Simulated scan of single mutants.
Amino acid sequence: MKLDAYKLGVATAIVLAIIWVICSVLVLALPALMMQMGGHMLHADLGAAQWTLHWPGFIIGLILWSLLGGLMVWAVAAVYNRLVG
């Protein structure tokens, strides 16, 4: 079965954009809890760190995470399609 690499990449970009927005809202609403969760995910003590979330950073992060994630999944699907012949 072949995958439509373009559609899979676009779908991934959309889902990552939604996740980015949800995560950013959580950082704004619950900064201490999100910092603690980030520390647990990184196996680090981020107690002294602070969040800095501004509109340009939000927009740039949204675009980059969505674009790079979509491109990566597009590439995986393209390679998969070549492997299955």
Rank of each mutant, 00 (worst) to 15 (best):
I22C: 02
H40T: 11
V10I: 15
A77Y: 04
I63S: 02
C23I: 14
Q50E: 07
I60P: 00
L42Q: 06
G39P: 10
P56T: 02
A77H: 05
L62I: 05
I19Q: 08
I60R: 13
V73G: 08
P56V: 10
G39D: 03
A78C: 05
V15K: 15
A78I: 04
H40I: 15
L3I: 14
V76A: 12
V84M: 09
S24Y: 09
V25N: 07
A49G: 01
T12R: 04
M1H: 11
Q36L: 00
L71Q: 07
S24P: 06
V21H: 05
A5K: 14
G47M: 06
T12P: 03
L53N: 02
W20G: 07
Y6E: 05
A44Q: 13
I14C: 11
K7F: 03
Q36M: 00
T52M: 14
G70V: 15
H40E: 14
I63K: 14
W74E: 13
G70Q: 11
G38H: 04
V21L: 04
V84T: 15
M1P: 13
R82W: 13
V21D: 04
G70P: 04
W74C: 15
L3R: 07
A44D: 12
L71I: 15
V27D: 08
S66R: 00
A44C: 01
F58T: 03
C23R: 08
H40Q: 15
P31V: 04
V10S: 13
V84A: 08
K7T: 09
A29S: 15
I14N: 14
G85A: 11
T52R: 12
V79P: 06
G39C: 12
Q36P: 00
A75P: 01
Y80P: 10
C23H: 06
A75G: 13
A44L: 02
W20R: 06
L26A: 06
S24I: 10
W55A: 12
A78S: 13
A5P: 13
G39E: 10
K7H: 07
I60Y: 01
A77C: 01
P31Q: 01
F58A: 06
I59Q: 05
V10E: 15
M72W: 15
H54P: 02
A32Q: 09
W51Y: 10
A49L: 14
G69H: 05
T12K: 08
W65K: 07
L67V: 13
A17Y: 09
I59R: 05
A78P: 06
A29M: 10
W20T: 11
A11T: 14
G69K: 03
N81H: 05
P56Y: 07
I22Q: 02
A5E: 11
V25G: 09
